[in-house]
Design a protein around this nucleic acid. Sequence first.
DNA 1: TCGCTCACG
DNA 2: ACGTACGTGAGCGAG
Length: 882
Amino acid sequence: MSHLVLIDGNSIANRAFYALPLLSTSAGLHTNAVLGFTTMLLKVLEEMKPTHVLVAFDAGKVVFRHSEFAEYKGGRSKTPPELSEQFPLIRELLDAFSIRRFELEGYEADDIIGTLTLRADENNWKTTVITGDKDMLQLVSDNVSVALTRKGVSEIEMYTPKEIEEKYGLKPLQIIDLKGLMGDSSDNIPGVPGVGEKTALKLLHEYGSVEAVLDNVDKISGKKLQENLRENVDKAKLSKALATIMRDAPVEVNVEETSYQGYEADPVVDFFKKMEFKSLLPKVKGTATAEGGEVTEAAPFSFEVVEEGQTSQFADKLTSPMAFYVEMDGENYHHAPILGFGLAADGVALYVPWDVAKEWTAFREWLADESREKWVFDGKRDTVGLAWHGLELAGIRFDSYLASYLLNAAESSPQVADIAAHYAEIRVLPDEEVYGKGAKRIVPESDVLSEHVARKAAALWQCVPRIRTEVEASRLDELLKRIEEPLSLVLAAMEKQGVKVNESRLQQMGEELDAQLEKLTEQIYELAGTSFNINSPKQLGEILFDKLDLPVLKKTKTGPSTSADVLEKLAPYHPIIEVILHYRQLGKLRSTYIEGLTKEIHPGTGKVHTLFNQATTATGRLSSTEPNLQNIPIRLEEGRKIREAFIPSEEGWYILAADYSQIELRVLAHISGDENLIDAFQKDMDIHTRTAMDVFGVAQEEVTSLMRRQAKAVNFGIVYGISDYGLSQNLNITRKEAGEFIERYFAVFSGVKKYMEDIVQQAKQDGYVTTLLHRRRYLPDIKSSNFNLRSFAERTAMNTPIQGTAADIIKLAMIRMQEKMREKGLKSRMLLQVHDELIFEVPEDELEIMKQLVPEVMEHALELKVPLKADVNYGRSWYEAK
DNA sequence: TCGCTCACG
DNA sequence: ACGTACGTGAGCGAG
């Protein structure tokens, strides 16, 4: 019996593209959608054993079947270039498999498939449609099944009339009515506002079709629902029409002509090799590898170790450019010993052990020579690590670590092994596999170590041209060259410089805390009637919710929540609550900020030397670890005192701190172009007061502190990607009230509203969002059918350009500031960056100039439609610089 | 190692 | 109907 398989080419390619990471061949060709498509195809051929196969594609311009609704399918008219460049490859794939493919100018794949299923049905053939699009379920009949892909393309779910009945309680054709009522955002079918799947199914179970629902509007319960249906009769009918798949498109292929007789191994193998699908090669039928033969042999790798006394033989191998890697024993390069160096260029791969390198003068000169180009992987790490050993590094030209972060910020802090897997032929093991992890970590035998490091350098050498091509193709080259690479050297200097900590001051504060905590502990035990571990949420929960019988307001996965916002609500019920809150606050100070910070003081310098991670965050911000100096307390006075321990490293100097005022809202004003918000900043008004005036419709002097507080929360919400639920939680108000605030905000700041809508739309089209300086973040979940994932991606789409642009701006300011200080021969030093503020240590005679220079540089780092504003303060400690 | 809690912007 | 505010890192308890 004939079995026809019809594949929705565009739908599967899209699914595969968003489900898989953006893989590419060593030549820089993107292949993730091709790979996903291939996996699906192999599985279908193997499991369904079709006699006939055809893959349908959309073709040509989108057809506006309904001119009255021009937005139709607007949401997917623009495909990201990384995907569209893969369609020709998918066509090649199908040709290699001798599979019929078809597209028809002006028609979509659905229409072709709809037409062919009908014809096959008439012949009484069995047909299976493979797609990711639920709309296709309308094609199901006794002879036609639809296989929907799940989890990208790796799994399929078969639908016959029985499954549709079980899942929806509908006949296949009623899927059209379902879409007509509920709409489909990914397909830009509007549906009826306020009607989701639940409501639509309820209505259809009762009345059967869109038309019958509309005819019986009067009988439908729910005033709002009735009203929505009445006001959207046309929309409902149009949506139904849009959701209906054509069954009579002029498809000139007969079903008999889609006959499939299996494939030839050779063209498939050639194609897989071109795509570098090494893991799929053994699956090709009729080749030696498929019968269990040897797969592919690892490429041979040769390298040389530079031994003591032989350095002169290697002097002429120190060329320019050269891939360069510093191997260290440990993650923290402020402490980690240097094990050796990897160097590579065309036909050269060297390992230089540390003991040899430090005595090799020509090598040290090569290191410090600005004109000798080094292709590095995390040049900041190399620079600081070498600086601790008194070695200078210059000539850094291309940093693959930063480049690969810009290409995909989702893969944070990559290793050489990660980029080598993407861009190089040479294999590099992850460090964890060479050293072991955790307590089992150990430096391997020298032959293993030297090969590992030499491989890293050799892989780096292969990666650079390919990564550079991708960086340029994505318009990220400016960001890399002008911002991230120069910044890495600014950060290197800051980390190496460190921040002086007054250890005895910390110790003294610790003793005071100990005394207070002891008293609080006693009080808590007394009030609880028993002793227990207050730091254990589990034990604390038992005391509060079982023993004292307090109400459970919020739950976590593991039990009732004891977080501060819950405890604050419980305070009126029992005096123990406020003592616990105080205990928590002081306990945090003691463990994280007194004990934690003290452990991080460098014994040699008496300073803390943080690590600024430049390739961690999804938005382009920095992060800080060991210790994290970006979360030192400030909001509560008791915690703020910790800042008294951060002091200048030179006698008589000052700490100077400058912070941007409302940088994120100013960035929002610029990118949204909202006239009202721009006006507020041009007049340099208090933005929360101004928001309160506009949202509540009152004069400036009528703004109460409550109104300002609420307006402030709304402003925060706007920056985070507003939701009524989030705002209601924050302000402790109902969702309805929160929704009203948002509505009023958007009425006044309509440009902001438009920005929010546009950016989400853009993210859906492109699959990513960008900052002003082209920094990119991919949002694979933006079209997810899972509400939570999609909503999260939508808020991220709103927030990332704002947070990321602010990050771009302060990075520019840091680079400019470092340049200015050098030009002017200033002795002042930049010490820290805390997202919107910069902290310096400054000699007394430079206070005047720095007070003026720092805000000036920050305010003009990038010209926006609104002025940027920075405030500056200084004092004898970080605490006093307020 | 994971989840919770809490410090910052 | 669904159930989260965006971005981080560290310490602790428990398995």
